[in-house]
């Protein structure tokens, strides 16, 4: 895979900043941000080279699950790896996200080690 260019999707500016800093610390330099799913779809279409999405679930307008479904249904971006980082931790939610097409799933609060492990796991497949 080419150099990773992340898109962080979260309506919380604080969480975007935390994920941004964690990715930077893990050595990733190319990081874009979006506040919700619709903005994320717009950025995928307008910013070239985004090849990894880290998304929250609970967001206004278009939530993370809808975003995953939109991305998987789109021809152009359907293969992009998606990591969901969310507070939702009940089994039904996790299975729903899995069926929608997320590649891996992290429950907040998370540590940088967990984020790194999930990114590595996704990229190794």
């Amino acid at each position: 895979m080419a150099e990773l260019k992340f898109l962080i999707v979260d309506d919380s500016p604080t969480m975007r900043r935390i994920v941004f800093n964690t990715l930077k610390r893990l050595g990733y330099a190319h990081i874009e941000e979006a506040e919700q799913g619709q903005e994320a779809m717009d950025k995928l279409k307008t910013i070239p080279g985004i090849n990894f999405v880290v998304t929250d679930w609970n967001m206004p307008v278009m939530d993370g699950l809808q975003l995953v479904q939109e991305i998987r249904a789109s021809g152009e971006f359907s293969k992009i790896p998606i990591l969901m980082v969310t507070t939702r931790s009940v089994k039904d939610d996790i299975i729903e996200a899995m069926k929608a097409g997320v590649n891996n799933y992290i429950v907040k609060p998370f540590t940088p080690d967990v984020l790194k492990a999930k990114i590595d796991a996704i990229l190794s497949k």
Partner: peptide
Amino acid sequence: PKSFNANAIFIDKGNIQNLI
């Protein structure tokens, strides 16, 4: 209602994360 999870809790989720 899509913008929040009222059941969000701040505890170490290591146990659940392992199961996931």
